Amino acid sequence: MKSTLKAAMFFLFAVLILGACGKSDNDDVGKGPDAPLQEDNTVTIKDDTEGGTLDSGDGYGFDKFDLDIEVDGQDAVDVEYAVAKSHAASYENKLAGVKLKDTEAFDKIDEFFMDIMLTKDTSEQEAIDKIMQWFGLDTYTDFDLEVDFDEGTKLDIEDKK
């Protein structure tokens, strides 16, 4: 009886080992010239109705942002962000001596947009207040802001003092 039990256990052990070491049908996918090619999965990003996603380019809720602020009649701040045709950005704060383009500008603009959080429902005065606070400005002589929100509305502020 002992030898039968040992033989059965040895047989079961051998089956398990051989099964684990065996070759599956998928081992050759994508290998060699005659092997079938593995199909690529496609990832689709669906825009949210309230601002899209960062991956689709309109994650802030708008695809164009153009800000110009003058202080004492001199250019002080210029921020441009556009997604529509060319994903481009520039950020300039002459008062702080900052002039950025490309990746550095995107990084700073991302921080700026995430802090001010403009939406289609933001009032003109609230937008001015948030932006002025971000740049640490108390007054301006010319404030010009154009924002094209992704659902089709626009925020256009032109204020001279």
Rank of each mutant, 00 (worst) to 15 (best):
S24E: 11
D25I: 05
D25N: 11
N26H: 06
D27T: 03
D28T: 09
K31C: 01
K31S: 02
K31D: 01
P33A: 09
P33S: 07
P33C: 00
A35H: 01
L37C: 06
L37M: 09
E39P: 07
D40F: 00
D40G: 00
N41F: 08
T44C: 07
T44I: 14
K46G: 03
D47S: 13
D47W: 05
E50N: 14
E50M: 10
G51Q: 09
G52N: 11
T53G: 14
T53S: 15
L54E: 14
L54F: 14
S56A: 12
G57Y: 04
G57P: 10
G57W: 05
D58F: 08
G59L: 04
G59Q: 06
Y60D: 10
Y60E: 08
D63C: 06
K64P: 00
F65V: 03
D66C: 08
D68N: 15
D68S: 14
V71I: 12
V71L: 10
G73M: 07
Q74M: 15
Q74K: 15
D75H: 07
D75R: 02
V77W: 02
V77G: 06
V77H: 02
D78E: 13
E80D: 12
Y81H: 07
A82Q: 11
A82V: 09
A84K: 12
A84F: 10
K85A: 07
H87I: 03
H87N: 15
A88Q: 12
A88E: 14
A88K: 13
S90I: 00
E92W: 00
L95H: 05
A96D: 13
G97C: 06
V98G: 04
V98Y: 02
V98K: 13
K99V: 07
L100C: 04
L100M: 05
K101A: 08
K101W: 02
D102C: 03
D102L: 01
D102Q: 10
T103V: 08
E104Y: 06
F106C: 06
K108W: 00
I109D: 02
I109V: 09
I109F: 01
D110F: 00
D110Y: 00
D110T: 08
E111F: 01
F113E: 07
F113C: 03
M114P: 01
M114C: 09
D115M: 08
D115N: 12
L118T: 02
K120Q: 14
D121M: 07
D121K: 14
S123R: 10
S123P: 09
E124P: 02
Q125W: 03
Q125L: 09
E126H: 02
E126G: 04
E126A: 12
E126N: 11
E126W: 00
A127R: 03
I128G: 03
D129E: 14
D129N: 13
I131L: 10
M132D: 08
M132K: 11
Q133P: 00
W134E: 13
W134S: 12
F135E: 05
G136I: 00
G136R: 05
T139H: 12
T139K: 15
Y140F: 15
T141I: 11
D142V: 07
L145K: 07
E146H: 14
V147G: 05
V147H: 07
D148A: 15
D148K: 15
D148Q: 13
F149N: 09
F149V: 10
D150H: 05
E151F: 04
G152W: 03
T153E: 14
L155R: 10
L155S: 12
D156H: 12
I157E: 10
I157F: 11
D159M: 11
D159E: 15
K160H: 12
K160Y: 08
K161I: 06
